[in-house]
Design a protein around this nucleic acid. Structure first.
Length: 431
RNA sequence: GUGGGUGUAGUUCAGUUGGUAGAGCCCCUGAUUGUGGUUCAGGUGGUCGCCGGUUCAAGCCCGGUCACCCACCCCA
């Protein structure tokens, strides 16, 4: 029986032509982070199960995880996300000067059924500010997110950064008459609003409110609010400090100018550890309905590791979902997709010339030129085809005659012209 | 875990009421034995996902199974 030619379901392997695109995306993300003064970190792929059981969403550590018992009898998990590891790293650094701005590009694992934009092994870009309670941290993080979209030339018309606040919503729900014990269910119902038909959603919400139709109607009104200046809303929330914070944050966003950011009370996010401002980045078109990015403030994440209370704000961004988004809007240029593997191809006329070709290749490489030499041993015509297929613009032909004379012909494949000269002259020509 | 769809050449896909397995692209050879893209001529390549059933005869019908895709759940 022969082995399968496919990798395990949901595990990613990338051919060079695919990897090139991923690298372009990840390098752009890194550049944007570094530009805002963020530093890259990394953590272990395998973590103790308990690290996730405590704080992530319920399903994350349970049904949707790769977990097993290692040879030492420890319950371990292939990390489904990065934030708990980050919290531990920070908690362990007694001397760390806060705040810190860190980012990471970890491979994460979730055991769920693969679908579009969703696989079992995925890169999740993470960016966080830790140790600042100021709304300036939320602003900074959202500005980086906006900067990322700008770097990819994504116009603000094709995406939306919806934001809200957990604290505000908790307060607002109470004021709508939702019982405290039902708040979790109502949150989860609110989160589903965009995915359901209005009637069905209203029914679900009513259930979540424990059948209290008065409360349900108010929640519907709350979630439908589009402006913070809405009279009904300001009346409802008068005297609320959480609402005051939301208004303040809105002023910050307007002050700097973040056209993609829109206050959306319906945004609550699924992860349990978010406490304050939460936000997500959505594609406004129809093709990528999931959020590309989700984030927010968490106040007590490091609490797991002791008394130290560290507040943070950050987001996770799926590299694959982002890439799909960029591709559907044609934002990955042909120069990224078709980047040439080298600047010059050295065609070898006969095996006797291999040495000469190698010497020439080394000479050019020492000058910083990317050189591919033929290893196929096929006839020259085929070698030219090969160079052309790789998108390499120049071909230098090396045979025993050229080696003896020290003079080579270099053909420009785009216009067919031929340049003849010494290695130095060829170098100058290529520079 | 739930629901829907699709499995035919390396790839994208046709394949009529059941009657000899097809096309484009790719690849290989030649026209051109030291010069690519275009063109022309020719060629390689399939256990029709797998197992069973019906039939004189199955890519096609039936049952099962596996894989992949899409959606749900959850989330990036």
């Amino acid at each position: 029986m022969s082995l399968s030619t496919k990798p395990l379901s949901g595990m990613r392997q990338r051919l060079p032509c695919e990897f090139r695109i991923e690298k372009y995306v990840t390098e752009t993300l890194r550049l944007c982070s570094v530009q805002a003064g963020f530093e890259e970190y990394d953590g272990p792929v395998i973590e103790p199960l308990a690290l996730f059981a405590a704080k992530s969403g319920g399903e994350l550590a349970g049904r949707q995880s790769y977990c097993f018992t290692d040879r030492g009898g420890r319950e371990v998990i292939l990390r489904p996300e990065m934030t708990p590891s980050l919290a531990r790293m920070v908690a362990a650094q007694g001397e760390l000067q806060l705040p810190v701005r860190w980012f990471s590009m970890p491979l994460c694992y979730r055991y769920e059924r693969p679908q579009r934009g969703r696989v079992r092994e995925f890169l999740q870009f993470n960016l966080d500010v830790l140790g600042s309670e100021s709304l300036a941290a939320e602003l900074e993080v959202i500005l980086v997110l906006q900067g990322i979209m700008k770097s990819f030339d994504a116009p603000s018309s094709i995406y939306r950064i919806g934001w809200s606040s957990r604290r505000f919503m908790a307060d607002a729900l109470a004021r709508c008459g939702v019982e405290q014990s039902l708040a979790g269910a109502v949150f989860s119902a609110v989160d589903k609003r965009d995915k359901m038909k209005p009637d069905a959603w209203a029914e679900l919400l009513l259930q979540a409110c424990g059948g209290d139709s008065g409360a349900a109607e108010k929640v519907i009104a709350l979630v439908s609010v589009e402006a913070l200046s809405d009279q009904w809303l300001t009346d409802l929330m008068s005297g609320s400090s959480a609402f005051q914070e939301v208004v303040e944050f809105d002023e910050l966003l307007r002050g700097v100018g973040v056209p993609g950011a829109i206050f959306s009370p319906g945004v609550v996010r699924g992860l349990d550890y978010y406490t304050g401002i939460v936000f997500e980045l959505m594609d406004t078109g129809g093709e990528n309905r999931r959020s590309l990015c989700g984030g927010g403030r968490y106040d007590n994440l490091a609490g797991l590791f002791g008394n130290k209370k560290i507040s943070g704000v950050g987001f996770g961004l799926g590299v694959l979902t982002l890439t799909l988004f960029l591709e559907t809007y044609g934002l990955i240029s042909d120069t990224v997709k078709e980047a040439a593997a080298a600047e010059v191809y050295i065609a070898v006329a006969s095996f006797e010339a291999v040495t000469g070709a190698g010497i020439l290749a080394e000479f050019l490489r020492d000058k910083g030129i990317r050189v591919m030499t033929d290893v196929s041993g096929k006839k020259l015509g085929k070698q030219f085809s090969e160079a052309s297929r790789y998108g390499i613009p120049f071909v230098v032909t090396v045979g025993s005659g050229e080696v003896k004379a020290g003079v080579y012909k270099m053909k420009n494949l785009s216009d067919g012209t031929v340049f003849t000269g010494s290695p130095e002259e060829i170098t100058d020509r290529l520079k």
